[in-house]
């Protein structure tokens, strides 16, 4: 059985259903590699680090203000995250559809949830790698001043959770969209609606504004990025990710029936 779950060199599953973890791992590895088989992965990471650097140094003027804090870095990342995650998630199902491999995917002897979670982890791997490229910032700044590691850890956790939420939403969109560009546009749009939701509250009555504030991804991200791990924020991000993945899996299943 375990042997059956082993992947071929190209990463396509062979044989029957393996253990869910093995299947997920195989799919995740395949997805992760797929990003870097073409220029896409490199372009995304390069552009992200470039824009984060520009925002950090020019918009927030960190060195001019002499502040030994990475808060502006995480604010920049958080603002660019909907775009990055839309780029990472757009290919998950839309590309399969475009290439006509979606039928092959849904007829594979693995559960739909394994496919969805595997693809999600593959995209998360790329996000993790992108964040890893920015590790030079805390290293350099900690040599220049008494950098507090709490908000740095919190910031990275927040970006990973926020990214996870956007990717999960992107996968839902991608599972319904036929082409990648539409998927990218709709995911980024939805991502920015969630991001800006807590910034337009002045125009709304107080009862509505508190609900919208809670729905905003940036509201929860900011809380974690201060260096406070709050279960409310974890539940929020966990809910968006779980909900997104479950709906994406359902969407995949419904394809099988239709």
């Amino acid at each position: 059985m375990a042997e059956q779950a082993k992947s071929t060199k190209s990463g396509v599953l062979r044989g029957g259903i393996g253990s869910p973890l093995a299947n997920i791992w195989t799919i995740a590895k395949r997805e992760f590699r797929a990003y870097f088989n073409g220029p896409m992965g490199y372009i995304v990471v390069t552009m992200f680090t470039l824009f984060v650097g520009l925002l950090f140094f020019f918009l927030f003027g960190t060195l001019v203000l002499r502040r030994a804090t990475l808060q502006p870095l995480f604010t920049s990342m958080s603002a660019l995250l909907p775009l990055l995650c839309a780029a990472l998630s757009m290919r998950s199902f839309s590309e399969e559809r475009q290439r006509g491999t979606i039928e092959l995917l849904i007829t594979l002897p693995v559960r739909d949830s394994d496919v969805v979670v595997g693809k999600f982890l593959g995209a998360m791997g790329v996000l993790f790698l992108t964040l890893l490229a920015t590790i030079t910032y805390p290293i350099a700044l900690s040599r220049m001043g008494d950098l507090d590691s709490g908000p740095v850890i919190g910031g990275y956790i927040g970006i990973l959770l926020g990214g996870g939420a956007y990717i999960a939403i992107g996968m839902v969109i991608s599972s319904y969209m036929k082409d990648q560009i539409s998927s990218f546009i709709v995911t980024s749009l939805l991502g920015y609606i969630l991001y800006f939701m807590d910034k337009t509250l002045i125009f709304l009555p107080q009862s509505v504004s508190s609900v919208l504030e809670y729905l905003s991804t940036d509201f929860h991200f900011k809380s974690i990025a201060r260096g406070v791990i709050d279960t409310r924020n974890l539940v929020y991000f966990g809910s968006v990710i779980t909900g997104g993945l479950m709906i994406a899996a359902r969407s995949l299943s419904s394809r099988r029936w239709s």
């Binding site: 850890i153 406070v228 709050d230």
Partner: peptide, 15 residues
């Protein structure tokens, strides 16, 4: 989420 608002915990990582 509503339940999590009623019972929650926090871990302060700041120095």
């Amino acid at each position: 989420n509503i339940l999590s608002l009623k019972a929650f915990g926090r871990l302060d990582l700041t120095k």
